[in-house]
Design a protein around this nucleic acid. Structure first.
Lengths: 133, 133
DNA sequence: GCTATGAGTTAGCATATGCTAATCGAAGCG
DNA sequence: CGCTTCGATTAGCATATGCTAACTCATAGC
């Protein structure tokens, strides 16, 4: 998937949760893109069978689209947590950076980061338990 | 600076050290790009006053180019070390990934990562000293 | 019923990056 | 000397992304 497509898919997924119903304009507003750009992007996602557009303009992720979206969002939140922990940056910065690097990191590096963050969180819990004694 | 320009600058800097003299073809071979693409990229770097091309075709970084190159390479090696440590990936993977994320990470996240890696290395030294006792 | 508004699409453009094919110029070889 | 080869450049193309301007279409209000 392209970087931009990933971004659109993630946005559609999140807007669906937030608004219930997602249209092109909602996406354009959320991403600060023109209606035209979104229209073309939606046309591409439709060709790739990621979304389906109802007669009333409502945009729905297909089952494949939902699967993709979950993968993208999981990656995104893992990387965002990771950056917050290791680089000590704020939520907003972490999310923005995660959005970019999520697309460019190799699979093996991402897996390594996932292991790192799981170990880190476990360790934190252990520390917390000890402090509780 | 563009992502591609950063890559070209870094390559020129490294090839200069490795070969002594850098020409367009050397860059094309090193990066696996066509001569044409490199030619156009060099023309852009010339316009930005990053490189200077001698009559014999030799490419030299200007003082500004060298400054840029050092910043890029430092960032690159910091991120590469970082990925090797936290994600436990091999040198090659770490370098490739560092090349990409180096361009997309925000300054604050990069600074945070730098602090993290310095702390990590210090700690390792301390551990090493303790083990030596 | 006409018009204004909102949503979506299309045409045409711009930038960043890459490619191949063709060409130019210099250098080396038979 | 003429041909080949090498290095560099140019023209023309392709893809990915974005934009504005102009259009269509449906609906809501007067």
């Amino acid at each position: 998937m392209n970087r931009s497509a990933e971004d659109y898919i993630r946005t559609i997924y999140l807007l669906k949760e937030r608004l219930g119903c997602v249209r092109s304009v909602d996406i354009a507003k959320e991403m600060s893109f023109s209606k035209a750009s979104v229209s073309i992007a939606m046309s591409n996602l439709r060709k790739k069978n990621i979304i389906r557009v109802k007669k009333n303009g409502e945009i729905e992720l297909t089952p494949e689209g939902i699967k993709e979206a979950r993968i993208i969002c999981e990656k995104h939140s893992t990387l965002s947590d990771f950056l917050k922990i290791v680089a000590n940056v704020d939520e907003k910065t972490a999310k923005e950076d995660a959005r970019w690097i999520g697309h460019y990191l190799s699979a093996s590096t991402y897996e390594g980061i996932k292991r790192f963050i799981i170990a880190m969180k476990t360790k934190e819990e252990v520390n917390h338990d000890f402090q509780g004694i």
